[in-house]
Design a protein around this nucleic acid. Structure first.
Lengths: 252, 252
DNA sequence: CGGTTCCTTGACACAGGTCAATGATTGTGG
DNA sequence: CCACAATCATTGACCTGTGTCAAGGAACCG
């Protein structure tokens, strides 16, 4: 049975956290002491809400979760500020480890399977294993770095560039987890993308249309296909060579 | 001698990092093993540049540093993307601990004294002391959390709210480090504030004027005085109760 | 199949970007 | 200490991009 758990962990997003590559089997053994709890959540449910006590880390096995800042959660979703989206294989709940209370919430937007790792026991494992604590550090640093990328994204001058950057970011993350880098399904709505980028749903929609018109992507409802990832990248980075009508050399 | 070093550390920003409050004296002893290097840097100098090997943490003893993303550093400062400002007492270099190379740079904008802590030896101390590693975790989490606040700031609908939020943030940070919460000197130029907020220098200037016109602040060159912090806060958070007068900012 | 939610598209207005001119502040050398 | 230059900050006039409002269409679900 314990063997079964290890094999499961090998296949889940947590493996990057507890298996930095060549961590000895003993860590698998210890992993079982963590009392990781598997769970399933449907769209709309919350993994945690602002104000909840911080008890666990979460890793997404599948689905999609949005992290929402605390601004006026009562008053509908009109003013919601989306801090980010978590995809399958990614870790949530890293930003408030120093505190006892969440000040943002994590709401499921596509039915998800997840693992919940009690923070106390995980912290214990960190103390026992240098490799595990190293991994936690790497996770935290990587998370901080991803957030910085988000900041750069938000400061793209025009909405078209922001959306292009957003798509590139998703593509990259799907690819990292073994998904298809050029074809994927958007779990989030236009409104949610808009709130994430600081735009409106209408502008997001218009930009999707514009990108499609330029032949950079194909959109059918939530199904995305990136036709010219390079051009999207340079659109995001304000490279001068892509602005006009002509886009030289398809990269593939 | 070692006693002298400890006393110095008690007065510097690093104390929050190595002295979580009641850490025993033994940690002061170990602190000396870190071979912390004191340094001074003038405006314009770089603590590290994109591409530099990650070797150290930095703590600012005084002055101000801006963190700049890697986008086109060659082409002047026109396109520079400022990820954040570090004030006296704060820690830099936490976002790339998992990597060997910086992908952002840290440039001094007001003459600064700082401490440079070799990452290797600090990591060693973390392994030896649970309290120190706890502190590192808290620092990282706090840093990630601060970055999330920045994201919320960038998504404020209007420029006036962004600037108000920026001022509140500075005020809070000055206060945390024992400075005056309502009166301080802006080390950064209007252009730098603009690049940080994703605006232009002109808009920043107009917003300063508008805030002054409304009686929320006083500005004399770089000297700032917050007259109505509450009003600034609510301006940032889009509270309806702001302050009655609904003034248009457009010049004509 | 009908109701609900989500997406797309258009018309218009306004916040903020751009360009340009002037004023304030800082730094440097005589 | 002043004069000059260079940088920085402010303000105005104009224009573009995106928010807002509104209408209609597509997809989803019971």
């Amino acid at each position: 049975m314990s063997d079964g758990t290890c094999i499961d962990c090998m296949q889940c997003g947590l493996r990057d956290l507890c298996l930095p590559g060549q961590v000895a089997m003993e860590h698998h053994e210890r992993l079982n002491q963590l009392r990781i709890r598997r769970g399933r959540a449907m769209a709309g449910q919350w993994l945690y809400r602002p104000g909840d006590t911080v008890r666990s880390l979460f890793t997404l096995r599948s689905g999609c979760v949005k992290e929402v800042a605390m601004t006026h959660l009562d008053a509908g979703q009109d003013t919601e500020c989306i801090l980010g989206f978590s995809l399958a294989g990614e870790v949530l709940g890293l930003t408030r480890l120093d505190d006892t209370v969440h000040d943002s919430g994590a709401q499921v937007i596509a039915d998800s399977y997840y693992c919940e790792i009690p923070w106390n026991s995980f912290r214990q494992l960190c103390a026992e294993s240098r490799q595990v604590s190293d991994e936690l550090l790497r996770l935290l640093a990587r998370s901080a770095h991803a957030t910085q990328k988000t900041i750069a994204l938000l400061r793209s001058k025009d909405a078209l560039g922001q959306l292009a950057g957003f798509l590139c970011n998703l593509s990259e993350r799907f690819a990292q987890r073994g998904g298809h880098p050029r074809e994927f399904r958007l779990s989030m709505s236009r409104v949610e993308i808009a709130h994430y980028l600081g735009l409106t749903a209408e502008t997001v929609s218009r930009c999707f249309s514009e990108l499609a018109r330029r032949g950079l992507i194909e959109v059918h409802a939530k199904q995305m296909r990136l036709l010219k990832p390079q051009a999207l990248q340079s659109l995001f980075r304000h490279d001068p060579d892509c602005d006009g009508t002509r886009m030289s050399m398809a990269a593939g």
